[in-house]
Write a protein that binds this DNA or RNA. Structure first.
Length: 417
RNA sequence: GGGGGAAUGUCCCGAGUGGCAAAGGGGGCGGACUGUAAAUCCGCUGGCUUAGCCUUCGCAGGUUCGAGUCCUGCUUCCCCCA
């Protein structure tokens, strides 16, 4: 598997990004000459991408860094159709305004990983709505559709799994792979794109695109997929106490993002350092030799480096400092997620239950009440045992905040305003 | 077109003789132990102004003191025959 001569392929290989590749040697040769134009499509199904997409984003990052061209394709068109890959049920069809809003919100994170203004080979961010929405049905069938064999499409995993389980697969979803294949061809024509990257579940769709390219007369196209990233305990990566691990700061604070990495399994540290940070591999090798409690140092490094990539060095540093003073010194660190409340409201007093719900630490009064019974609730590090307790201005610490804790890990500051 | 099954706690799977806020899992959350890890053990896992009240078993009606459970109609899905 080794023996790559290009920086791009060597880095991807060494850091564990490669699952399948249609022609490793051919791609290596292209990359060696800096001639790779690679893209990844991101559908706009939510207002933010989450860590699940981070592997892909990191590949684009390395692609550009190694002197090739990276394209982040927004799926403004394909999202209107919905990818059935790896799903048991059809997605709800999203409204066009939603897709548009999602797209804008998603696009922001890429500037952290890609340079769109570089003088040489700047990264690009087209939207497949640019061409897909202009297609005419008959032309589409004649130009593109005739190259697709239904027999073969039925054998593709994304389709076959649904059919085997006798689960509904609508015609619109069935068309997704055709659109994705066509994207590849269109990007090849527009920008000289020759590589599509993606998760392992995208292999079928990508290879279809290569096939279509051959039939429609493009230059040679390549496919490269990443392994499915799971945690050491086998779970799909990307859950935390706060829910999904979003990349947008307004949906998951840099502090919580840092915590996500800080809390990873021991067995994941090395792999995650290679995939989600840009630390040199010898440094990674050194970090993973740490044993037992010392491994925590490696986790902090992972958290800070990964957070720095996404939210900037300052935010990462601040998250680390906040974590240290919260967990290692037990203070109400100012950098904790903060919830604002009217000063007047606090003056007249607010019940603990309501306050914890407002701060997002409990879903309902009942849940907060149960948490109190379980001994999980603390105000200013004092355990609360009375669910009728009232919180008011006298609870403000010298820092002018009230620290709420749900269990040992979830802390929020309440600040009057 | 005919016949037979299924739909349960708004995360999922799943039991449920007319007395049911409804067994059991998984997942999640919390606690203990640890290292903010894993494993293990324990608790919690409809809502509320909580001695009580309210809303839940596909949808709409009905029988009954009382319906997840019985009856009727409807919707969706699956199986068999055509």
């Amino acid at each position: 598997m080794s023996g790559f001569t290009s920086d791009f392929m060597r880095i991807l290989d060494e850091r564990g990004f490669i699952h399948q590749c249609s022609d490793p040697q051919g791609l290596d040769a292209l990359a060696k000459r800096g001639e790779v134009v690679g893209y990844i499509g991101f559908d706009c199904t939510a207002p933010s991408l989450h860590v699940g997409s981070l592997v892909q984003i990191m590949m684009l990052h390395w692609l550009q860094l190694s002197g090739n061209r990276a394209i982040a394709l927004m799926g403004g068109g394909t999202t209107r159709v919905g990818d059935p890959s790896g799903r048991d049920e059809s997605r709800k069809l999203l409204g066009i305004e939603d897709i548009d809003a999602n797209k804008k919100s998603i696009a922001a994170v890429f500037s952290r990983f890609l340079d769109f203004t570089a003088p040489a080979r700047p990264a690009l961010m087209p939207d497949n709505a640019e061409w897909l929405t202009k297609m005419n049905y008959i032309d589409m069938l004649r130009d593109v559709g005739r190259h697709f064999s239904i027999n073969r499409m039925l054998s593709m995993d994304s389709v076959k799994l649904r059919l085997d389980r006798e689960q509904e697969l609508s015609f619109i979803e069935f068309n997704y792979m055709i659109l994705q294949s066509y994207d590849f061809v269109e990007l090849a024509r527009r920008y000289g794109t020759n590589l599509q990257l993606g998760g392992s579940d995208q292999w079928g769709n990508i290879v279809n695109g290569i096939d279509l390219g051959r039939r429609m007369g493009t230059h040679q196209l390549y496919a490269l997929t990443t392994p499915l990233i799971t945690t050491a305990s086998g779970a799909k990566m990307g859950k935390t106490a706060a829910g999904a691990v979003w990349l947008n700061a307004d949906m998951l604070s840099p502090y919580d993002y840092w915590q996500f990495w800080r809390n990873c399994d021991d067995g994941d540290v090395g792999r995650f350092l290679r995939l989600f940070t840009t630390l040199p591999l010898d440094e990674v090798a050194r970090l993973v030799t740490l044993q037992g409690a010392e491994l925590n140092e490696a986790k902090k490094r992972l958290a800070t480096e990964a957070t720095a990539l996404l939210h900037g060095r300052d935010a990462a540093q601040q998250a680390e400092t906040t974590a240290r003073s919260t967990f290692e010194m037990g203070h109400a660190a100012a950098g904790l997620p903060t919830h604002h409340i009217e000063r007047s409201e606090l003056a007249s007093g607010i019940g603990v239950l309501a306050l914890f719900v407002r701060a997002g630490l409990a879903a309902s009064n009942g849940e907060a009440r149960r948490a109190i019974t379980n001994g999980a609730v603390m105000v200013n590090d004092q355990r609360v045992s009375d669910d009728k307790a009232m919180i008011n201005v006298s609870d403000l610490l010298v820092e002018g905040v009230i620290k709420l804790s749900m269990g040992k890990k979830r802390h929020v500051l309440v600040r009057p305003s």
